[in-house]
Amino acid sequence: MKYWRKPLDADTIKVPHGRIYVVKEQCKGCGFCVEYCPKDVLELSQEFNKKGYHSPVAVREEDCVSCGLCELICPDFAIYAELIEEDETTEETPNKTDKTEKAEV
């Protein structure tokens, strides 16, 4: 992170980090999160989901500050960020991917 002028407490303030989760099959590819993410973390994937939409991918996840904007702006309840706790290893992906997704109308 670059500062135009370095704040006096920059050394003591910890910048939070977030982990991004995408409910891929619920995304309709509107691009709101990609456009308005203040840290430009997201891009639309080139892949299609089952409904034929491009869901977002975190291309600069290390920049995510878990501000929650993506969750708030997403009209499809398809993305959210979680704050990474200090002692947590960032590489660990929660075991959420295993469940099969089934959306009934």
């Binding site: 989760y21 409910v23 959420k96 469940k99």
Partner: peptide
Amino acid sequence: MNKPAAHLETAIVEQDTHPMADLL
């Protein structure tokens, strides 16, 4: 323009993990 490798890193999760799932 997208980096295919990045996709692998993004956690794809189920709908019921969404923080608002309890109210939807």
